[in-house]
Design a protein around this nucleic acid. Structure first.
Length: 762
RNA sequence: UGGGGUAUCGCCAAGUGGUAAGGCAACUGGUUUUGGUCCAGUCAUUCGGGGGUUCGAGUCCCUCUACCCCAUCCA
């Protein structure tokens, strides 16, 4: 439980602790207009996961406010995905459309309050009136309609008296707001369309901004988590709830960064394009980043959830490496699934000195997987091995079969190559080999040392199978779309051989084909007569890496290059810090006077010369007799910080207090650090510095005789740190200073502490 | 260019003034009848840049820069 929490969980925890809510209620609110993808998995994991962690509830709500794009089949896919990932929503599946009547009533209320109006501008006019990002908009002439007229019009909109686009309902907020979302956002539009659930009951539909916050409120949601692009919409969310005087308790919106992955596209539009263009076989194509795709590929729900938990939650736009997902599935499958043998590219091996057949005992699990189970492995004179596992001219470091190097057949015997048979084109068609009868696995008395064991399949009893090898769908890290597809994302191997047990015994749903990867029978195309296996993910392969073959290696190279360049670049622009606008004439005069008469440094004089508010405070403080440099620092750091959130009229202290504080620093009655604490106290209570220091007992301790015992105490308390320090870990010095200061409540004079420590630690 | 955000290792990501967590990737070495797993180890004198405050700054102040989002009757 004492795990580190992400910022969302932090918020929930605090809200629960403060009693703001007595239970957390979240929701996952997808729009049913496409298949859910791994990005949704992240949102699902967050919303359901937080509810679970804090023993709250999570609703599933279809955000079905746009009848023209939404379909029941998508809603179904979403429900399936949530269940498959292992989550259960609280109560029934909810729909924004369940609340259409209540939403309508809220809209009427807004109209009555004069906070919403029916606008009859055309779509283009509305756009034009809205202004741009840099210019304010103008309010529609229709905004002046009376409440009665608005009520009448809105009701007639509902009754279907108008065509699409004739009128809309808008909130009356602020057409000149720098936040575009606040420029009288649309609340309702007319759509004579058939809705997947409400049919033709409505012809006006609420917009996202209006429906979402109210649906959250209606459901008693406490924390409404959404992605970053809704940050600007939060103002509308709050406006609607506040204007209608809803709550507390009421929901608040918090945003997190959506998931991006390299070599992947995540937008619904691009995914749809892939499906529609036939570049993939459908939404559940195993190369698709959809939940359905991963599921068909063979990913486990647990691996997806683990992945989502492993990537963290933050507000930084980031791109997760697919390797992290691949790690999650390997990590889940490795300790679980049976190991079996499959040969993808068969090369026949005839063992000349072997006659008859036998069945070898072979465990399904390697020594490091604590599971029981084995099968009988048929063995006979003719077997298949992987073409890659033989080499006539082996590269350096090759561990497998060569004319001079024997190899072990996994779970069976050691063999040696006697002869290589080729066809007229020079292609190897067969290996004639010899086995060592006394080398049987588990009963090896031959004493032969081999470098590796390879998989094989008995020719007589093995099954032909189709194997589909998937690679990343896109060939570049940040694909734009179809133009960046990886032409080799699917390799179909028709003539593979799998051992008997895989077909006849089926010890599990998923397998590791030894030395190759994890595989899963394709749920659509695999049948008894025609087994088809999807490669979920390959095994890590340090040999491929080392021998530098395959496109992986190529990608690594092309990847490494821009990075090197980037690093280079990073150092370069250290030349010129940005130029600040020059001082005008009066500012210049002030600046010069501060520099010459008061002895301020440039960094102090400059901002004071520019900022009138700070300057007047500073000047007034000077008159009270404060030391210029100290006062300048106080004003420039502490006051400036407070002025970021509070206006100058609201300050609870004046020049006298600042001057007094400055004087106390000057006289070394308190340290500068303590002065900051005093300052905070002034902000909080409005008391004078003298009173605060008095009351808190914050006077500085500068007497070495008083500090020394504390130094000793600290040093005896952390003997191992002292040792580390003496061994050269100089960074620890700060730690010791910190401890001593902490022990004195920050009152010890840091200069003295430093001296003392320096002497004792020698 | 107005507003809202974000910048910590190749990729995620902790960090709330006192020794820069962790995971992925990568790289050593060991175990291994999977070139897998596992185990041990290496991998940020530095937090987008520059200044300032402080005994001490990734954390506070000033400033600059880069990137993302907002001008759908989409969500």
């Amino acid at each position: 439980m004492e795990k580190k929490k992400d910022f969302l969980r932090m918020i929930v925890q605090e809200d629960l602790a403060s009693g703001k809510y007595k239970e957390v209620v979240t929701r996952f609110p997808p729009e049913p207009n496409g298949f859910p993808h791994i990005g949704h998995a992240k949102a699902i994991t967050i919303n359901f996961g937080i509810a679970r962690d804090f023993e709250g509830r999570c609703h599933l709500r279809m955000d079905d406010t746009n009848p023209v794009t939404e379909e029941e089949k998508y809603a179904k896919a979403i429900e399936d995905a949530v269940h498959w990932l292992g989550f259960e929503w609280d109560g029934p599946v909810r729909h924004t459309s369940d609340y259409f009547q209540r939403l309508y009533d809220y809209a009427v209320q807004l109209i009555k309050m004069g906070k919403a109006y029916v606008d009859s501008l055309s779509e283009e006019e509305i756009r034009a009136y809205r202004g741009t990002v840099t210019e304010p908009g103008r309010r529609s002439p229709y905004a002046e309609r009376s409440v009665e007229e608005n009520l009448d019009l809105f009701e007639r909109m509902r009754k279907g008296e108008f065509k699409d686009g004739e009128h809309v309902l808008r909130a009356k907020i602020d057409m000149s707001s720098p936040n575009m979302q606040l420029r009288d956002p649309l609340l309702y539009r007319i759509r004579h369309a058939h809705h997947m659930r409400t049919g033709d009951a409505w012809c006006i539909y609420p917009m996202y901004d209006f429906a979402h916050c109210l649906s959250d409120y209606i459901e008693g949601i406490t924390h409404s988590f959404c992605t970053l692009e809704f940050e600007n919409n939060r103002a509308v969310y709050d406006w609607i709830l506040d204007t209608l005087h809803l709550g507390p308790p009421r929901p608040y919106q918090y945003e997190f960064a959506r998931l991006n992955m390299n070599y992947t596209v995540m937008s619904k539009r691009k995914l749809k394009e892939l499906v529609d263009s036939g570049k993939v076989s459908g939404w559940d194509d195993p190369r698709m980043p959809t939940i359905a795709g991963y599921r068909r590929r063979g990913y486990t729900p647990k691996s997806i959830v683990n992945f989502c938990n492993s990537i963290g939650i933050s507000k930084a736009n980031s791109v997760v490496d697919v390797a992290q997902l691949e790690h999650a599935i390997r990590d889940d499958l490795n300790p679980k699934v049976p190991r079996v043998m499959c040969v993808l590219d068969p090369l026949k091996v005839v063992i000349e000195n072997y006659e008859g057949s036998e069945e070898l005992d072979a465990s399904y699990y390697p020594h490091d997987v604590p599971k029981e189970g084995s099968r009988k492995l048929p063995f006979s004179k003719e077997i298949y091995i992987e073409r890659d596992d033989f080499s006539e001219n082996p590269p350096k470091g090759y561990y497998r079969l060569t004319p001079d190097q024997p190899v072990r057949l996994r779970h069976a015997y050691v063999i040696r190559c006697k002869e290589v048979i080729k066809d007229e084109t020079g292609r190897i068609t067969e290996i004639r080999a010899e086995y060592y009868p006394n080398s049987r696995s588990g009963a090896d008395t031959s004493g032969i040392k081999v470098k590796s064991a390879i998989q094989w399949v008995d020719a007589a009893t093995g099954y032909r199978a189709e194997v589909r090898l998937y690679d990343r769908l896109f060939r570049v890290e940040n694909p734009r779309g179809i133009e960046d597809l990886n032409p080799d994302s699917l390799k179909i191997v028709k003539g593979a051989y799998v051992e008997r047990a895989v077909i006849e015994e089926k010890p599990d749903e998923r397998f590791q084909f030894e030395r190759q990867g994890y595989f899963y029978p394709d749920p659509v195309d695999s049948g008894g007569e025609h087994p088809v296996f999807n490669r979920i993910v390959s095994l890590k392969d340090s040999w491929a890496k080392q021998s530098g073959k395959g496109k992986e290696a190529l990608q690594k190279v092309s990847k490494a290059e821009p990075k090197a360049a980037k690093k280079e670049k990073k150092k370069e622009p250290s030349g010129e810090a940005g130029r600040v606008a020059p001082l005008d004439e009066t500012q210049r005069k002030i600046f010069d006077r501060y520099r010459e008469e008061l002895g301020l440094r440039e960094e102090q004089a400059n901002p004071l010369a520019r900022d009138e508010v700070l300057r007047s405070l500073f000047e007034a403080g000077l008159e009270k007799g404060a030391a210029p440099v100290i006062l300048a620092n106080l004003v420039l750091n502490e006051v400036a910080r407070e002025l970021k959130t509070v206006s100058s009229e609201e300050l609870r202290y004046g020049p006298e207090e600042l001057a007094e504080l400055a004087k106390m620093i000057e006289e070394e009655r308190i340290s500068v650090k303590i002065a900051k604490q005093v300052f905070e106290e002034m902000v909080r209570s409005g008391e004078s510095p003298g009173e605060i220091v008095e009351a808190k007992g914050w006077e500085q301790i500068s007497d070495p005789q008083k500090i020394l015992p504390i130094v000793d105490e600290v040093l005896t308390k952390y003997p191992e740190k002292v040792a580390q320090y003496r061994e050269g870990n100089r960074k620890l010095f700060g730690f010791f200073v910190g401890q001593v200061l902490k022990a004195t409540g920050g009152r010890a004079n840091p200069r003295i502490v430093n001296e003392l420590l320096n002497r004792t630690l020698k």
